[in-house]
């Protein structure tokens, strides 16, 4: 049985009217809003501040997020909470092995019961036409469906029967993935992993955090909307305007070229990865309330952005190689450690 659960989070009338005054608000104001967002999210996901900040960074950098974790770690909760605080329309698609691309993208339906004049095909939008799409357990779907989603992610539009339908903006996909050694999975190939801006993993909560979570009375209460769509657009615009010095660009270039020149990295970083690094570092600087990028910003997002790109996909890895440091995080950390941020 195909399980399709679509939740619609109707955009409530925005608290903040989109007007000129608002667009000129100071950075100070923006940063306060970001802090409010972080606080709101940390009520839902307790003790994972770094991952939450990364998720916000990913959204601000206009990238798609891949969460790889065991079941029950809060992947769905995180994506749902994100859409709530940013006031975005939300849809969840549960991926199974028999999910077809049309289940996700939508179909043309023939209206036969209408009068003759109105008998025609109309397009029924699939769940992908939402601002936040949670692609749950992406690696359980067949490669065909996976690539339909990943194509939509890259193009930000969908073509069905020769008609192109633009996806809403902002368009943000949060995909979750079970660790690939679990049965019944179709691992994503390297080329498709590259499409995801970031990969994060929530992991088990700390003792205190889990205790706080258990003591929460009303865990399922929805979060209120904090930001409007216009706010988000403005923030994204400001992120692109963050100052990046030559020193930072060279640092990113050194990291990327080290991965290509050294023989330790079977999958060197692509230009798409270096662009993502720059964008991610800018967004991180913005979230950290700074209007320029420092090497620390690059380092903060580096592992999340590169780990899934550096690793070989699991099926071309033997067990031995996985143990021998072909694990993405380790490779990523090694690459980071081998390049001096202060070099000329």
């Amino acid at each position: 049985m195909l399980v399709l659960k679509v939740e619609q989070n109707h955009i409530q009338s925005a608290k903040f009217k989109c007007d000129r005054n608002f667009l000129n608000v100071s950075d100070q104001f923006m940063h306060k809003e970001i802090i409010r967002v972080q606080q709101a999210l940390s009520q839902k996901i307790i003790g994972k501040d770094h991952q939450l900040k990364l998720a916000i960074t990913c959204l601000l950098a206009n990238g798609h997020l891949l969460i790889e974790d065991l079941p029950g770690m809060g992947k769905t909760t995180l994506s749902h909470a994100l859409s709530q605080v940013f006031g975005l329309q939300y849809a969840r698609i549960q991926f199974t092995s028999d999910l077809l691309p049309s289940d996700m993208l939508g179909v043309n339906i023939f209206h036969s019961h209408e009068s003759d004049d109105e008998k025609r095909f109309s397009f029924r939008h699939g769940p992908i036409f939402s601002q936040v799409v949670l692609a749950d357990e992406l690696n359980r779907a067949s490669p065909k469906t996976q690539s339909a989603l990943l194509e939509a992610m890259e193009e930000r539009q969908v073509s069905i029967d020769g008609v192109t339908h633009a996806l809403p903006s902002p368009f943000f996909v949060i995909a979750t993935q079970n660790p690939s050694y679990q049965s019944g999975t179709y691992p994503l190939p390297e080329s498709q992993l590259d499409r995801f801006f970031m990969r994060i993993s929530l992991g088990y909560p700390a003792w205190e955090a889990e205790k706080a979570m258990l003591m929460q009375r009303d865990a399922s209460a929805p979060l209120g909307q904090i930001l409007s769509e216009a706010n988000l657009h403005e923030m994204q615009r400001r992120v692109s305007a963050i100052h990046t010095s030559d020193a930072i660009l060279h640092y990113i270039l050194r990291l990327v070229s080290e991965s290509r020149e050294s023989h330790d990295y079977p999958n060197p970083l692509s230009p798409r990865a270096s662009r993502a690094l720059l964008q991610g570092a800018k967004a991180w600087a913005f979230v950290s309330d700074r209007d320029y990028v420092t090497p620390e910003d690059v380092q903060a997002v580096f592992i999340a952005i590169t780990a899934h790109r550096l690793t070989l996909s699991s099926h071309s890895l033997s067990q031995g190689q996985q143990a021998n440091g072909f694990d993405g995080e380790k490779l990523s950390q090694k690459l980071l450690d081998s390049v001096d941020p202060l070099a000329a």
């Binding site: 420092t294 090497p295 620390e296 380092q299 980071l336 450690d337 081998s338 390049v339 001096d340 941020p341 202060l342």
Partner: peptide
Amino acid sequence: DRGHKTLSA
């Protein structure tokens, strides 16, 4: 030794 640490670290 600073090694490859960033300035603030």
